[in-house]
Design a protein around this nucleic acid. Sequence first.
DNA 1: GAGTGGTCTAGACCACGTT
DNA 2: ACGTGGTCTAGACCACTCA
Lengths: 253, 253
Amino acid sequence: MPTSAAAARLDKLPDLDGEDSAPRYHQIREALWLRIQSGDWRPGDLLPPESELCAHFQVSRGTARRAIDDLVAQGAIERRQGKGSFVARPKFTGSIAGSYAIYRTGAVPHDRDSRLLSCRRLRVRRELAKLMGLPPQTTVYEVERLQFMEGEPITWARSVIPAELCLGLEKQDLAHEHFYELLERRFGLSLLRAEEFIEPALPDRYIARYLKVARGTPLFMIERHSYTVNERMAEHRIVYMRGDRFRMKVDLR
Amino acid sequence: MPTSAAAARLDKLPDLDGEDSAPRYHQIREALWLRIQSGDWRPGDLLPPESELCAHFQVSRGTARRAIDDLVAQGAIERRQGKGSFVARPKFTGSIAGSYAIYRTGAVPHDRDSRLLSCRRLRVRRELAKLMGLPPQTTVYEVERLQFMEGEPITWARSVIPAELCLGLEKQDLAHEHFYELLERRFGLSLLRAEEFIEPALPDRYIARYLKVARGTPLFMIERHSYTVNERMAEHRIVYMRGDRFRMKVDLR
DNA sequence: GAGTGGTCTAGACCACGTT
DNA sequence: ACGTGGTCTAGACCACTCA
């Protein structure tokens, strides 16, 4: 069942460990982050006010704030003045974002659209089961989609998700709803973080046909591992993105 | 002249603006960052102790520290307990690092080496002059190098630098010294930040020969713009990196 | 107006590196 | 021993949101 905007409670949160040499703000940060990772606190949940955190952990407000500051910097918590602090909804869900940005070679992208190619229920391939930490023969959903910008095909993507995490996925509106929002809202499946591995690649015949590019057109191949509660891999995604229309920008300091 | 490890002074640093609605820590951060960007304070310089910053800006230590915290997070300042705070040396100089990481597909990279292909003095190409903000016909150095890992060619790179920033570059040991360290030490040229644009690409005959790959092998093409004092572009670099041996990793939150 | 986070203060003691 | 940054406290007032 989809849960939205509950209140995060401090029940059974450990006290600070006097023996632990780590700073208090660090211990507090660990305790809160564990709550989020474990799924006790879910994206959108309202955190207890700072005053309550101070009282619970027996620290001054500066120390409690420092812990939250770090979680905010880490992207795990959002603050809203006057309202409270909330468990953050994952940032990388929107477009392709995060610590790098995709830039169109030319104009600014708008006008997004996507098309569902297929959604199948099947047994996971052996290699993928190993990579995802699933028992052999686990049933998964395999979703293939195309993303368009300004009417032009830009990315082809195939996602694999353990079926038990989203039973009935094939009945959902996969064509138009945002994929991660759908998982969150319909199945209560929240993705907390992801890793991406990026390589240059060339399209095979299948991909080239969908992206409407010549076989020799350079592409980005992006492999994404998305994790949910308890560090469990909930989605394995392969994306091919046209390199003739997009590039990535990285700021170095 | 190479300057190393001077002391940063607070001379003529502006007072806080009471009219400014921005928080004090923000105004302090801006003032310090401007000092660094302008070149008054150089990488490696020792900052005044926090006590002195507090006295100068008439703020409490918490506020001064908050300003420095932000600059540390931004990568502009490094703290060393017991010693002091220092203007950071750029992080992206070592390998390719920053907000993303290059991962070898297979074993861990070690055993680096590089080879100088050429170092020429010539007039900058018209398009590049425009991109770099240089007058037409400006004299530049053009340096081509190969980088090896475990005896295998991994990247080919061509750097273009305005000649006046590093007069006599051709006499330096470009083969073995780290390039950015050499610029810093011999010419006092410090690069403060950089932007990279990454695309998938295929090698032309020239690049393929150096990297010892077939013409159809996918590569990363990385264009780097490095900036020195006053937001002046000091280096324009094109890198081709083998995509069959390396990939990039990005962490999303 | 009540409650939240945002900013700031003026102290304190500790850990580390140098002299 | 001394000076640096690292951690922490117990207050204060302001800005924003919502009832």
